[in-house]
Amino acid sequence: MADRAALLDDLAAEGDALDAVVAELEDTAWLAPTPAEGWTVAFQIAHLHWTDQQALLAATDPEAFAAALAAAGDALATHVDDAAREGAATGPEQLVERWRAGRAALSEALAAVPDGARIPWFGPPMAAASMATARLMETWAHGMDVTDALGLPPTVSARLRHVAHLGIRTRDFAFAQHGLTPPAEPFRVELTAPDGSLWTWGPEDADQRVTGPALDFCLRVTRRRHRADLALEATGPDADRWLDLAQAFAGPPGQERPPAGGAA
């Protein structure tokens, strides 16, 4: 539980960091377009609130979540967009208040999930700690869309380790999303943390390797930047392919962000 408590503290801190960006925005700034086509800043926050609410439902009433997921069926993507649109229409002040309350309720619910219990989700069921990591990842990723829209620097902290870890844990999922058989052997991943230290995963003698800045890796696995714009290096054909496919989130990979130079 100590590890989960620390993770929930990091989840709260990530939400607070984005909250600080949007809390005092003028109404017109909420209408600023973000890199996600058709999504404004308000849409991004409304989406985070809606997804937090879905996670809360999954953690507290799995049967109700499963029923809602089944009811959405093949129209899930449209349902997600519609929910963001509806939430964005409530007005900035009310939206922020709802988002804050939802974050707090979700954190409390995840703290209460019994050890070993699995929470249903849009992808595979997961433990409470994994759900907290997924919510942190999505908060950071949508926060990137917001800061991009506002011309602000990204939020960079030691919490990126959670995002990177999730990106690594979802390696096989990313291959499967594209109908490919995941590589059998583990990869070595070495990332330079924001403080200059080295974060590592996998065996030191692995043939397949990925190295580079942790921020760049997180931008890639959340698909917030084109690979051509990132200082990531892959050794081995499988690792190279992974950087093309990597995604740390459930569902389809979505449209690739164009490279900054305009050419792939």
Rank of each mutant, 00 (worst) to 15 (best):
R103Y: 05
A83H: 03
A128V: 15
D115C: 01
A128M: 06
A101P: 01
A77G: 07
Q94L: 15
D115S: 13
V80D: 11
T78S: 04
A105W: 06
D81A: 14
M126D: 00
S107T: 15
E97S: 12
R100T: 07
G87Q: 14
A88F: 05
G91S: 14
A88L: 05
L106F: 11
P92G: 12
G87W: 06
A77W: 06
A77Y: 10
V96S: 10
L95E: 05
A84C: 10
S130T: 15
G102P: 00
A112G: 09
E86F: 00
W99H: 05
A129P: 13
F122N: 04
D115K: 10
A112R: 04
P125I: 13
T78G: 07
A127S: 15
A132S: 14
G102T: 11
A77R: 04
T78H: 06
A129N: 15
A127I: 12
V96Q: 07
D115M: 07
R103A: 08
L95I: 10
S130L: 01
P114M: 09
P125T: 08
P92T: 02
L110P: 09
W121E: 00
E86N: 05
G87T: 10
E97C: 07
S130F: 01
A84Y: 09
A77I: 05
A83W: 00
I119D: 00
E97M: 12
G91A: 12
T90L: 15
A132G: 15
G102Y: 02
P124V: 07
E93S: 14
R98H: 11
R103H: 03
A83L: 06
M131T: 13
T90G: 14
A88P: 06
A109Q: 03
P124T: 06
A88H: 04
A109F: 05
V96M: 12
T133I: 10
A104P: 00
R103Q: 09
R100G: 02
A101R: 12
S130Q: 03
H79I: 02
E86G: 11
F122T: 13
R100N: 04
R85F: 05
E93N: 10
R103S: 04
V80I: 15
D82W: 01
Q94A: 15
V113M: 00
